[in-house]
């Protein structure tokens, strides 16, 4: 992420110096802090709500049941995570929320999973399972893209949901490519780590 932050900033400054509109860039810098707080407040509400609901689901044993449902598939995608661990439960819940298109619920559940995947609190390097899990979340796996469907309806589409099969196939394709990339790059990386 060092490269991303520095790269984005440098690219923007150099580019704007050449093509003008420095006032816009300056405003963007000044507003970014406020924007982060707004974003965090939105997230904060969702995180508390779903954190609370999920704690109830965990104590009553519901989450373990959800985990069993997805275990056959997820076990192959996350070979380093034990199938009956709390980490696998958290991953299954995040996948469930993603499939239903509940973005607000998926993020807190995903963060809970990241905490379970963290081997020890002082660790600052992502494990291979973490990379796979984050990649899965960046490559949307929604069954029902509700936001897009609503926008299409508002824009006067006759068939707001006709895009579904194409969405599913593109999603699956991009997730497969992502996992293949992970598998290739993991091997190269694991030599450096040792």
């Amino acid at each position: 992420m060092d490269v991303v932050l520095t790269g984005f900033a440098l690219l923007s400054v150099v580019f704007t110096l050449i093509f003008g509109k420095m006032d816009l860039l300056s405003a963007a810098v000044m507003e970014s802090g406020t924007e982060a707080v707004d974003l965090c407040l939105t997230l904060c509400g969702a995180m508390m709500l779903w954190g609370g609901i999920m704690e109830v689901a965990k104590k009553s044993g519901l989450t373990a049941k959800a985990a069993r449902l997805f275990c056959p598939v997820l076990r192959h995608l996350f070979p380093e995570v034990s199938p009956h661990s709390e980490a696998m439960e958290a991953i299954s819940l995040n996948v469930t929320a993603n499939l239903f298109g509940l973005g607000n619920a998926a993020t807190p559940l995903g963060i809970a999973a990241m905490k379970k995947l963290q081997p020890h609190p002082a660790n600052i390097t992502a494990t291979s399972s973490m990379v796979r899990f984050v990649m899965l979340n960046t490559a949307s796996i929604q069954l029902l893209p509700t936001t897009v469907a609503v926008l299409r309806q508002n824009a006067g589409s006759n068939h707001p949901l006709e895009i579904l099969p194409a969405v599913w196939l593109s999603s699956i394709g991009s997730v497969v490519i992502g996992f293949l990339a992970c598998m290739l790059l993991e091997r190269r990386d694991s030599h450096e780590l040792r």
Binding site: V4, N123, A126, V131, G178
Partner: peptide, 12 residues
Amino acid sequence: VQITNSRHTVVC
């Protein structure tokens, strides 16, 4: 989780 080294995440 305070991870700063994301390894190959961005590329993938």
